[in-house]
Simulated scan of single mutants.
Amino acid sequence: MRYQDKIVIVTGAASGIGAATARALATEGATLVLGDRNVQGASDVAISIGKQAMPVEFEASSADGCRGLIEQAISAHGRIDMLCNIAGLMDWAPLEQFDESRWDQMVAVNLSAVFHLSRAAMPHLVASRGNIVNMASAAGLVGVAYSAAYCATKHGVIGLTKSMAIEFASAGVRVNAICPTGVKTAMMSNLVWPENIDVSLLMRNSSKLGDMIDPEDVAAAVCFLGSSDARQVSGISFPVDGAQTAG
């Protein structure tokens, strides 16, 4: 019960890592605000958890939407103890095929939303001496072919994480990032491989332990980094990648 009496926001909570994280935090006592553009999916997750979870319709690509999610959490609970920035988008293609609109959407959802949510939540996290866990990726630590935009946003999340960790350390706010390898989620299973690519360039970008990991593996890392067990941990990029990025 490391999260008893803690108010936690989880974005991307309708499915995948976000849903697994919400359920894991709930088992440890957290009161949850579940943000997702798929409000029905977030509601289904909230129902599976119980009355301690509140679904909120949330559009990550909108700065106003990000601020609105924080405002709704404060209106409902009066405080925020932890922000889990998990909502994300995966899209990939050879560079010449990746047009401006796809780039702009990737940056808005994967990077700008993390900035807007963190900025809006920070005064409340300072008041509670809370923390942020951002979802980066193994692709934020290395380059991945045909994924220039995705890699750029996830490298950006890591840079933002480190900067905020330093800036707010004296205020008692911790900020960390998690860097998973491929995760067994609908987002990954629905990906379509671009045509005419060199598959050999992608072979290094997988877990050395074998299969893709489960969302619950990532959720466990979130629960640790957000808890008092990690009270001296801040500014890290925590791989959950089966040695993908080890060398």
Rank of each mutant, 00 (worst) to 15 (best):
A139N: 15
L141M: 15
V173A: 09
S128P: 11
A177E: 02
T161W: 14
N131L: 01
V175T: 07
L141E: 10
A139Q: 14
V133E: 05
G143M: 06
T185Y: 08
N190W: 05
T161H: 12
V144D: 04
A145N: 14
I132N: 08
V192W: 02
V199G: 04
Y150C: 09
I166Q: 15
M135E: 00
A186T: 14
A138F: 03
N176S: 13
A127F: 03
A149L: 07
V133N: 08
G140Q: 01
V183A: 02
S137V: 02
I132M: 06
Y146A: 05
V183R: 13
A152Q: 06
Y146H: 09
K154P: 01
W193Y: 12
V126H: 11
P180T: 00
T185C: 06
S200E: 15
L201T: 15
I178Q: 00
V183Q: 00
S137Q: 02
S200N: 15
G172H: 11
S163N: 14
C179D: 00
M188P: 01
A186R: 14
F168T: 13
V199H: 11
L202P: 04
G182N: 11
A136E: 07
A186C: 03
W193G: 04
K162D: 05
P194I: 01
A165Q: 06
A169F: 11
N134L: 10
A139P: 02
T153H: 09
L191A: 11
A136S: 15
F168R: 14
Y146D: 03
G182Q: 12
L201C: 11
W193K: 13
M135F: 13
G172I: 12
L202G: 01
I132A: 10
S128N: 07
E195C: 01
T161Q: 07
V144H: 07
L201S: 11
I197L: 06
S147L: 03
I158H: 00
K162W: 04
E167H: 12
T153S: 15
C151F: 03
P194V: 03
A127L: 09
G172T: 14
A148P: 04
P180M: 00
P180Q: 00
V144K: 13
P194R: 03
A138P: 02
R174E: 05
K162A: 06
T185L: 06
I178H: 00
G182S: 15
R174D: 01
A127N: 14
N196L: 02
